[in-house]
Every structure is written in C-alpha cells, then in structure tokens.
Design a protein around this nucleic acid. Structure first.
Lengths: 202, 202
DNA sequence: AAAATGTTAAATGTCTACAATTTGTGGGTG
DNA sequence: CACCCACAAATTGTAGACATTTAACATTTT
C-alpha cells in the first residue's frame, strides 16, 4: 500500500456521505434535514450530526435558519455559476503556477492512480465515482500547491458548482482532459497545463 | 429606528467576539484555544463554543487538528494574499455590476449611516470600529447584489485578508475611498464605482 | 366567516456526564 | 546518552437529558 492506514473520523464519514447525497441529487434542493433522523441513520448521537450540518452549511451545500433546522440549498443561478467558474479558474491557475518543479515522482504516481480510478469509473459508467475522482485529482494539485489553506478556499466553490451538474455535463472528455493536464505537468510545460486546465473547468 | 430590534443568538455573539479578538490581534497567531476556558469566559457550556470554533475554522481564522483542539491561524503568505485580493476584487466588481439600478433610497440612507460610523470611528481613532464599519459597508453591497449566497463566498476571504492588517494599512484614505464609491453608485456611474472599488481593495 | 389569540407538539439549542484520544512525563533498556 | 515503551493528566469527542423556541392547529372573538 502507498501509505499507512489512517482512521477516518466519524464526522468526516458522515460529512462525506451527506455531501455525496446532495451532489448526486439523492437529496433534492429544499429538502429539510432532521438532526435526530440523521443521528439514527448513522448510529450516532445528535452532537456529531450537528457539527456536520454546520460544516456543510459553511460549505454552502445547506442553508440554516435559526431554530428551524437546515435544508438543502438550491442550485446556483447562472450569474453566480459564471462567477464561480471564473474564481475557480483563477485559483487553479494560481496553484499550477506555484507548482512549477515542486511535484515529485511520488506525486505523479499518485496522480496516475487517481486518473486510473477516473478511467475505471467512467468505463463502469459510475458517474458518481467519476465525480469523486475528478475532484480528487484537482484537490491533489491544489493541496500540493497551497496546502490546506488553499484547499479551504477552493473546496466550497467546487462543491457549490457541482450541485448544478444534474447529469448535464457528460464525462466523455473528462479522462482525456485530465490526461492532458497531467502530461503537461510531467513535461513541466506550465502554459500548456494552464490551457488544458482552463478547458477542463466549465 | 431603522429596523426592528432583532435578538442576536448566543453563538453569533460569541463568534463576533472571537472574530474581533483575532482580527484585532488580541489573539495572536498560533494561540491555542481551550473549549472549557472559552465556555467559562462566555458563561455557557462547551456545546455552543464548539459550534463557534467549527464555524471560525471554516472561515479560515482558526485551524483544527483532530482531537487536538484549535488554534489561531497564521497570517497569509504574500502569494496567497495576492490571490485573495484578486478574488475579492472579482467578487465585488461582479456585485456592483449586478447592482445597477437596484439600490433604493433606503439603501443609500443605510450606506450613508455606515459611512458616518466610519467617519466617527476614524475621528475617534478607534481603528477596530473603522474596520467593522469598513466591512459592513462592503457587506451591505455584497448582500444587496447576491444575497447570503454571495456573502458566504466573500466573507471568509475578507476575514482572512484582514488578519494581515497588523495596523499596516493606515485608514487615512478609508473614508474618502468609500465616499467615492457611494457617490458613484448614487450617480449610477458603474465604471466609476468599479474603479473606486478596485482602488479601495488592497 | 375571517382574523386574532391561546395551546400543543415537535424540532432545535443547551447543559452535564462519560468515553476515547492525544500529549507529556518518567523509568527502563540498548 | 539516546531511544523506546508504558503510564498518567488533560483535552477533545460523544451520548443522553433537559430547556427553549418555533410552527401548526384549535379556539375564541369580532
């Protein structure tokens, strides 16, 4: 194995599950979430659930009203979507520029692994896994370039954008686009990588 | 009075207080925060405090390590600061463009009030109040243009940027700059307002 | 009949106690 | 002397009970 087995905290697992449910559309916009029900579903008490709901609210996936609970946020209006695409491009281009020569062979191997997961998920038509691998690929670069700080800035934007992908954008070109980015990075061709990246973010 | 007296939830008060302490520098970077101590200080239990710490962590003011508590985040490195200035400008310009003709007389009156607070705070040399009024001014415009959604995107960036203002930037021109923005908005001169805005964000 | 008001049920907000994890310390060993 | 292991103190994570607020419904009044 590539790294030591690390345990995943309960809250993170719950958060991941809920994020998936929201982005996949299993939880439709405006769905009200009940703390007790979620606690029962995950077999924990309301404490951790509350923490997760607060997190997802800050990430923009949920909206909270005082003493009235939280519900799934609506999709972005086109103007907002446009702004977020723009910002996301800025962030990722910034990341790539700061990455010049910083990536090791181990990093490239890790990225290849993610790309392989992406390909497999696409072949198996598991679009939800495609999305996860897609996000993982970009997140790996973001984290390598700017650490958690940059990830914290980037992640909520991506999540919010993904709420709009109601199986609209086909993942047909997804693998190729990421392959292009990775190859350019390996060759240390920053401008090529930047162009490929901009094409991928839409 | 301009609007109905609304009660402020406990958590919000605690959050505001801690945000102030961090931005003003009363809580230096890397200071470790103890949940129980904070609970005692505010006269509540650890529950609400935990919620607030989670919020501020998501806002980037604090950093959390699993089972190890939270501490005040460090100041941004110059590269990050540059990126954030760029993004903040994008967001605020976007807001102003979407604001064309949407502001009512009541909005302008509200903005004038904030500007007055800014002037008073400057005259009294209360720089912390200057900062608050400054943020309020921009937030009012952001919210008017894009609602809570846009505020949620914008707020963490501003907070993070403000952690760097260790009384470096003098608030000398602050009032004038905001006056210029407001006047341009009143005259519906979007391009002028945009230019004034870009000059103010630094 | 419509509007306002009182009541009730259900959800969130908060508190206390307990469990689990981490960190620092001390003693032992190579 | 350095290193490692075990132990203990402190802090965070979780659970369950209680308090408070909200929203809906029934009731009363005009």
């Amino acid at each position: 194995m590539r790294e030591a087995n690390k345990i995943i905290p309960v809250r993170e697992q719950i958060a991941d599950q809920l994020r998936s449910d929201i982005i996949s559309g299993k939880l439709a916009p405006n769905t009200k979430l009940n703390e007790q029900q979620l606690a029962n579903r995950f077999g924990v008490s309301r404490g951790p659930v509350r923490d997760v709901l607060l997190q997802l609210t800050k990430e923009g996936l949920l909206v909270a009203k005082n003493n009235c609970g939280v519900s799934v946020n609506s999709v972005l209006d086109p103007s907002m979507q446009e702004l977020m695409i723009d910002i996301r491009r800025r962030i990722e281009v910034h990341a790539i520029r700061n990455l010049k020569g910083k990536l090791t062979e181990m990093d490239f191997a890790e990225l290849e692994d993610i790309l392989e997961r992406l390909q497999d998920a696409f072949d198996a038509q598991e679009f939800h896994e495609v999305t996860k691998a897609d996000i993982d690929f970009h997140m790996y670069l973001i984290r390598a370039a700017g650490g958690d700080e940059l990830v914290n800035l980037w992640y909520p934007i991506v999540l919010r954008m993904r709420m709009n992908y109601k199986r609209i954008s086909d993942p047909k070109d997804c693998v190729d686009e990421h392959r292009a980015i990775l190859d350019a990075l390996k060759a240390n061709k920053i401008n090529v990588a930047t162009t490929a990246l901009r094409a991928n973010i839409k």
